[in-house]
Design a binder for these strands. Structure first.
Lengths: 153, 153
DNA sequence: TATCCCTGGTTGACAGGTCATCTATCAAGT
DNA sequence: ACTTGATAGATGACCTGTCAACCAGGGATA
């Protein structure tokens, strides 16, 4: 089995490690910054963004899970915890007795609106400021290219 | 405060989301694959790689933590769990009564040697195969560039 | 309406991570 | 020796994520 899989070359190895390292540092920093300044975790933020992206401010569990690419049960746990903090609320689903809606609360809306500007500023400070517009666009293009094929691979 | 922070443009937003999305999918897939085929978590893998990278197969806690950029306590917990599974062992430090070494066990070595080829294959299948050599090098270059400045920012 | 399976969502147990706090040892200065 | 402060690492509480098992409501079929 070992024979059929060529190891990474030195250059490839360097690139790969840089890539992994960037993701590690970035997600750690962004999460810490968000938590410290707005009291929201990355998970909270992601859910709230998805909710504000919809017109009605409420979505079916399934749809939300698909939208942010999470497992069902992860979302279920997360929503339970967020409910306790009054960031979102569960609502019954009239059309389907099994289903349920997740709705953003007024408090949740306040929280994300307060958090968003700083979040954007952080993205700029940690990433955008260090790249030219072309470089950042290229990073996006390459990311999209790979991401699109990951599901199939 | 809102006024001083320009929102992301549509293009920037697209790039950023693609970037984040790639990270999410990739780490999820790699972790699942590793776990399923070798019984190791990403955390286990990272620790074992760092240990095999050293000549003696053992390192001081501090050095290991710095090497893989983890918090002290995270490493401590992780090593305790890995010890129970006989992947690593704690060893006393003669030079410094406070210190301790983490050493890879024979079983740990076997485990990582079994896991590595498939891991590399997965990196190839999910990422390298979808990019040209130039594109991948560029991805590495951009990652390194940003990562280098994150600590200071 | 009884039976079957499918689907939407929940739950409990457990691994992983962070934070604050604790213990033990070292290294200086007195 | 004796305090004092810094350093190495451990620990407990608590939050997050995964997995597998579960429960309840649809929808079809007989």
């Amino acid at each position: 089995m070992n024979d059929t899989v060529p190891w990474l070359s030195d250059d490839e190895q360097r690139s790969w490690r840089a890539f992994v390292r960037l993701h590690m540092k970035l997600s750690a920093r962004m999460a810490a910054d968000l938590q410290a300044h707005s009291g929201l975790s990355s998970a909270d933020f992601e859910v709230l963004v998805a909710l504000t992206d919809t017109a009605e401010g409420r979505v079916r569990f399934q749809d939300l899970a698909r939208e942010i690419d999470w497992e069902q049960s992860r979302l279920s746990h997360q929503i339970r915890r967020m409910s306790k903090r009054d960031l979102v609320a569960r609502e019954e689903c009239e059309e389907d007795g099994r289903g349920a809606y997740v709705a953003i609360t007024a408090h949740g809306r306040t929280a994300i609106e307060a958090a968003a500007p700083r979040h954007v500023a952080t993205v700029r400070r940690l990433v955008l400021d260090h790249l030219t517009a072309e470089e950042f666009a290229e990073l996006g293009r390459l990311s999209a290219k790979v991401a699109a094929r990951i599901d199939a691979a």
